[in-house]
Amino acid sequence: MKSKLLRISLIVIVAVLVTTGFSFGKKKAPSHFSTSGLELYFHVPNEDEVALTMLDPNPNYNLFLGKSYVGFKEALGFKESRGDYSTINQFGYLGKYQFARTTLQMIGIYNPDSFLKDSKLQEAAFSAYTSRNKWILRKDIKRYNGKYINGVKVTESGILAAAHLAGAGNVKKYLRSGGAQGFSDAFGTSIRYYLKKFSGYDTSHILPNKKAKAKVM
């Protein structure tokens, strides 16, 4: 009789272990494993692309950043310098985001040589300068966001990109004149072009800061 009860007990214990997955810890709610809200933008090659890479000894798959803030920075950096931190153009503009020396001094950077060798400092400079421009243009962002000027929809990210190109003052003149007072840089790139090219990125978390300085954390 005892051996029979022992066998029954063992069967019950095994059944419990199997149904619980041998786990005695606290169960986690399904929401714990949710990817909701995460930016999972990865480019995965399809069959045709995989076939093409058989002929390419150095295949390159890039992370797709979409319209995120990082995507905004990378797109602007690529337009300015093709993402080259160490470059100086023929007009003396420096680094990935092509800063003027006077602009760097304004955000607390006084050594251009060190700046060119420090990618973290360049990213911090971009953040600081963008925060300053957002403060200067805060009223214009509120007033013109979503409107059309010269056939281009105005967005916050477009305004901030144009300010990086032309300066906040010139962007303000362009917007308030309905596009009549334009600006083009030495390469012929216009405010209108930047408003269009960098439209619709998520720059909402950038805090307006009149006195922002470049700081490496």
Rank of each mutant, 00 (worst) to 15 (best):
4 K>G: 01
5 L>A: 12
10 L>V: 12
19 T>R: 09
19 T>F: 10
19 T>K: 09
25 G>L: 13
29 A>E: 15
32 H>S: 14
33 F>P: 03
33 F>S: 10
36 S>V: 06
37 G>S: 03
37 G>P: 01
42 F>C: 03
43 H>R: 07
46 N>R: 01
47 E>P: 04
49 E>C: 00
50 V>M: 14
50 V>I: 15
53 T>A: 08
57 P>W: 00
60 N>K: 12
61 Y>R: 02
67 K>P: 00
69 Y>M: 08
72 F>G: 01
72 F>Q: 07
74 E>D: 06
80 E>T: 00
83 G>I: 03
85 Y>W: 06
90 Q>H: 07
90 Q>K: 11
95 G>C: 05
105 Q>D: 10
107 I>A: 07
115 F>W: 07
120 K>S: 15
124 A>K: 04
126 F>E: 10
132 R>I: 15
135 W>Q: 13
144 Y>W: 14
151 G>T: 01
153 K>G: 00
160 L>P: 06
163 A>G: 08
163 A>W: 04
164 H>P: 12
169 G>A: 02
175 L>M: 03
175 L>K: 02
177 S>D: 10
185 D>E: 09
186 A>G: 04
188 G>F: 08
189 T>G: 00
189 T>P: 02
190 S>Q: 03
200 G>R: 00
204 S>K: 02
208 P>F: 08
211 K>G: 08
213 K>F: 12
215 K>V: 15
216 V>Q: 10
216 V>K: 10
